Deep mutational scan, measured.
Amino acid sequence: MLYRITVRNADGEKLEIVVEMSEDEVRALAEELRKAGYEVRVEPIPEGEEP
Rank of each mutant, 00 (worst) to 15 (best):
Y38C: 02
E20N: 14
L15E: 05
I45E: 06
R34K: 07
R34L: 05
A28R: 10
P46L: 14
Y38D: 02
A30Y: 05
E13C: 12
V26Y: 01
V26W: 02
N9M: 13
S22F: 08
M21W: 05
V7N: 00
K14S: 11
E31H: 13
E43S: 10
E25G: 13
V40K: 00
L29M: 09
R41D: 05
A30V: 12
T6D: 02
E32H: 13
M1A: 05
R41P: 00
T6E: 05
E20H: 10
N9S: 10
G12T: 03
E13F: 15
E47M: 15
L33N: 00
L2K: 11
K35C: 03
A10G: 12
L15H: 08
G37I: 00
A10Q: 09
K35T: 05
L2H: 06
E25Y: 06
V40N: 00
E49P: 13
V18Y: 08
R27A: 07
I5Y: 00
K35A: 10
E13H: 14
R27P: 01
I5K: 00
E13P: 08
P44F: 08
I17A: 03
G48C: 03
E20R: 05
I45H: 08
P46T: 13
K14T: 11
V26L: 04
L29W: 10
M21H: 02
K35Q: 09
S22P: 07
G12P: 01
V40A: 02
S22I: 10
K14W: 10
L33D: 00
E50T: 13
I45S: 06
R27S: 07
E47V: 14
T6I: 09
E50C: 07
G48A: 11
P44A: 09
L33V: 01
S22Y: 09
E16I: 09
E43F: 09
Y3K: 01
V42E: 01
L29Y: 15
L33M: 08
M1E: 03
V26G: 01
L2F: 14
R4V: 03
E50G: 11
R27N: 09
Y3Q: 01
A30E: 05
P51A: 08
A28P: 01
E49G: 12
T6C: 04
E50L: 11
R34S: 06
A10R: 11
M21S: 04
Y3M: 03
E47D: 13
R27D: 05
V40W: 01
I17S: 05
E49L: 14
V19H: 02
E25M: 09
E32D: 08
R8G: 06
I45R: 04
G12R: 04
G12F: 05
L29Q: 02
M1S: 05
A28N: 09
V7T: 09
G37Y: 12
E50R: 12
V40R: 00
I45T: 05
E32P: 01
D24V: 11
D24Q: 09
E25W: 05
D11T: 12
E31V: 14
I17T: 07
E39D: 10
R41G: 05
R41Q: 09
A36T: 08
I5G: 00
R8M: 15
R4G: 01
P46Q: 12
R4T: 02
Y38W: 07
N9K: 15
Y3N: 01
L29H: 04
K14N: 06
P44S: 08
Y38I: 02
P46K: 13
R8K: 12
Y3G: 00
M1P: 02
R4H: 03
E47W: 11
R41C: 07
D24T: 11
D24N: 08
P51I: 06
Y38G: 02
I17H: 03
V26I: 07
